[in-house]
Write a protein that binds this DNA or RNA. Structure first.
Length: 646
RNA sequence: GCCGCAAUAGCUCAGUCGGUAGAGCAUUUCAUUCGUAACGAAAAGGUCGCGGGUUCGAGUCCCGCUCGCGGCUCCA
């Protein structure tokens, strides 16, 4: 007999060899019906895998990420099984579960896969599910595994196996398909009731662009048909929130082939929106002791040779600008830090001057790879809400914490949920970084400690650091769940060294300041993109281009409507007019669809009383008010939203 | 940059077998002067992304480029 401990601390005895499924059955039939995966002593465990020693068990259902994970992982195998049945000579790479669904990377050999094949593949998968095949786990020796997959012509699998430790290799088999896999899996493919093959894409084998490119087949599956339908509807809805679509509808920004890829044109309403965001940030930063600076959009190439950026990115960037002068070269600035370092150097600095905080809404240019460009989230010209803080080593932590406060405050104003990520260097590839080990360790420790101090849960990723220092990034998801880095804070001991920055300490000796790079929005472009997707274009009242629109009932009241607009504008309310020769119902519909927060209807009654009839976006008629009262109420509402208590 | 897919009116899209282009919305004009989500009529609008090729003939087939979309890689 073995002792199984449950999450609530209860311990029950079972015969050795009992499976999680049987344990669940002993609790209730309902639980047994719903569990998809288990966890034994913190090890992922198939629900059909026998347990032969004491342990703590946890069950996972569809509602748990671990349950979905097993479900989709088995679905990936099912996809592979279908592909194996449909096409000869397919080689399989890897096929994991992902956040929403699963994929399988395959080398299709002679076969040509297109989206026209999706239906055929889905049908085959359903057919395989109907066979009710069990998914069977086997331990296998390295030699046997190599032979098995080698005989099957699965060279990619053999490469994976060759890197595994003998004695820890398992396979999972269903029907005629056997995959190298760690699991866990469902006991059979039977629960997979609804499958959708979503897309095809290229993906480099093992994520290495120097290796062959495979075909990645994406799919998703559900235990109920209805859930798939709901998911597909949700996807459609998400596409409607695409910032590229909304930005066009709201006349915020545009792209032109003639200007170039990845170079956004900001239209009047978009430009005004940017200005409001900048004012908002500048106001907060002023309270935190930042000083605004302005620097040129170009810089001498030597500036970037000094900073190290030229060696690292020079050949992949916009190439140097040549002047009439022989041998003189300038770069479009890809970042603001070197300029800010030069501002630091304009005067001798004392420890009494520090910290210095230079902020700039700095436009930078980066030649991003063509395939990377994506709406406003990845562009070749963007505006960083940048600042560089120069401080003594003693002040570092406090400064870092101050920046964290700004970022969390800003994200709370917009209601963004974010994930924090600490990006550390990859100790196996020191050649990718500049600076001493000692400085890197100091910087990495400072970030980790700051997060602990703030109680911020941050994922640590090695190899994600910038070449000159580690960073703390704030990631926010877009409408389709793709993660984008917005805010970033980076500790840098290296640029101060490269630029020979100094201050005089209390000891009258020269010291090296520490530098913090930080950008709460990251870039105005990306921030606006994510903001549009989060709000579906219904921007908060304080940011929205038009806060209200005046709708005259008929052309007879256009004059009064114009007086209302001008009075509101004088009161700093952003008001426009819809004086088209249309019926009021039509004007209401069109302006609701334009996402304008307040519609002000004016006719005979309003004109006589000097009032406007207020209709709130999505909420209907709110009754009528004096113009001045409406303006005051609106400004109160704005003040409540942007009550900048920092 | 790589793999795959697309590009037709301002927008969303149709266009069959290769025979010189069509709808809805938007726009303009006319009519109407209206009370809380689409009144009606008419007109105008296109070098079918660009360049080349095949063909008697190309929006349609082929090649190259550009731009865009989904991924991959990259992201100072």
């Amino acid at each position: 007999m073995i002792n199984i401990t449950f999450p609530d601390g209860n311990v029950k005895q079972f015969e050795s060899g009992v499976t999680p499924y049987q344990i669940a059955e002993s609790i209730s039939a309902g639980l047994a019906r719903n569990i998809l995966a288990a966890n034994l002593n913190d090890e992922e465990w198939d629900i059909s895998r026998p347990i032969t020693s004491d342990g703590s068990i946890q069950f996972f259902k569809w509602e748990d990420p671990e349950g979905k994970h097993a479900f989709w992982h088995t679905s990936a195998h099912l996809l592979a099984e279908a592909l194996q049945e449909l096409y000869d000579g397919v080689q399989f790479g890897i096929g994991p579960a992902i956040e929403n669904g699963f994929y399988y990377d395959i080398d299709p050999g002679e076969n040509q896969l297109t989206s026209a094949d999706f239906e055929k593949i889905e049908k085959k998968m359903a057919e395989l599910v109907a066979r009710k095949e069990a998914v069977v786990r086997r331990d296998i020796s390295k030699a046997d595994a190599l032979k098995f997959f080698g005989d099957g012509g699965q060279q990619l699998k053999c490469e994976l196996i060759s890197e595994l430790e003998d004695g820890h290799i398992t396979t999972y088999t269903q029907g005629n398909f056997t995959d190298l896999c760690r699991g866990p899996h469902l006991p059979s493919t039977e629960p997979i009731k609804a499958v959708k093959v979503l897309s095809l894409a290229g993906a480099y084998w093992r994520g290495d662009e120097k290796r062959p490119q495979l075909v990645r087949v994406y799919g998703i599956s559900f235990p109920k048909k209805k859930m798939l339908d709901e998911y597909l509807v949700m996807l459609e809805e998400a596409k409607k929130r695409d910032h590229r679509k909304i930005g066009k509808e709201m006349e915020l920004f545009a792209f032109s082939q003639n200007v170039g890829a990845g170079l956004p044109l900001w239209l009047p309403k978009g430009a005004a929106l940017r200005n409001r965001l900048q004012d908002f940030l500048a106001k907060i930063q002023k309270k935190y002791g930042y000083q605004q600076v302005v620097t040129p959009h170009i810089g001498n190439k030597m500036l970037y040779v000094t900073s190290g950026h030229y060696a690292k990115y020079g050949k992949d960037s916009f190439q140097p600008i040549h002047t009439p002068e022989e041998g003189e070269e300038y770069l479009l600035k890809p970042m603001n830090c070197p300029h800010h370092c030069e501002i630091y150097r304009t005067a001798p600095r004392s420890y009494k001057d520090l910290p210095l905080r230079f902020a700039e809404f700095g436009t930078v240019y980066r030649y991003e790879q063509s395939g990377e460009l994506h709406g406003l989230t990845r562009v070749r010209c963007f505006c960083q809400d940048d600042a560089h803080l120069f401080c003594t080593p003693d002040q570092l932590k406090q400064e870092f914490l101050g920046v964290m406060d700004i970022i969390s405050y800003i994200f709370s104003i917009f209601g963004f949920e974010y994930e924090a990520q600490i990006s550390l260097r990859d100790p196996n590839h020191p050649e990718k970084y500049v600076g001493s080990d000692e400085n890197w360790e100091k910087a990495e420790r400072a970030i980790i400690e700051a997060c602990e101090e703030k109680g911020l849960k941050a994922r640590q990723e090695t190899g994600e650091a910038a070449f000159y220092g580690p960073k703390l990034d704030f990631m926010v998801k877009d409408a389709l769940g793709r993660r984008w880095q917005l805010g970033t804070i980076q500790v840098d001991y290296n640029l101060p060294e490269r630029f020979g920055l100094e201050y005089t300490g209390a000891d009258n000796l020269k010291h090296r300041p520490v530098m913090i790079h930080r950008a709460p929005f990251g870039s105005l472009e990306r921030f606006i993109a994510v903001l549009l997707e989060h709000t579906a274009g219904k921007l908060p009242l304080w940011l929205v281009p038009d806060q209200c629109v005046v709708l005259p009932i008929s052309e007879k009241y256009n004059d009064y409507a114009r007086r209302v607009v001008s009075e509101l504008n004088d009161l700093d309310v952003r008001a426009t007019i819809d004086d088209r020769n249309e019926k009021i119902g039509r004007k209401i519909r069109d302006n609701e669809l334009k996402r304008i927060p307040y519609l002000l209807i004016v006719g005979e009654k309003e004109e006589a009383a000097g009032e406007v009839s207020v209709r709130k976006q999505g909420e209907g008629d709110q009754g009528s008010k004096k113009i001045t009262i409406f303006a005051a109420d609106l400004k109160d509402e704005v003040a409540r939203m942007t009550d900048f208590k920092v």
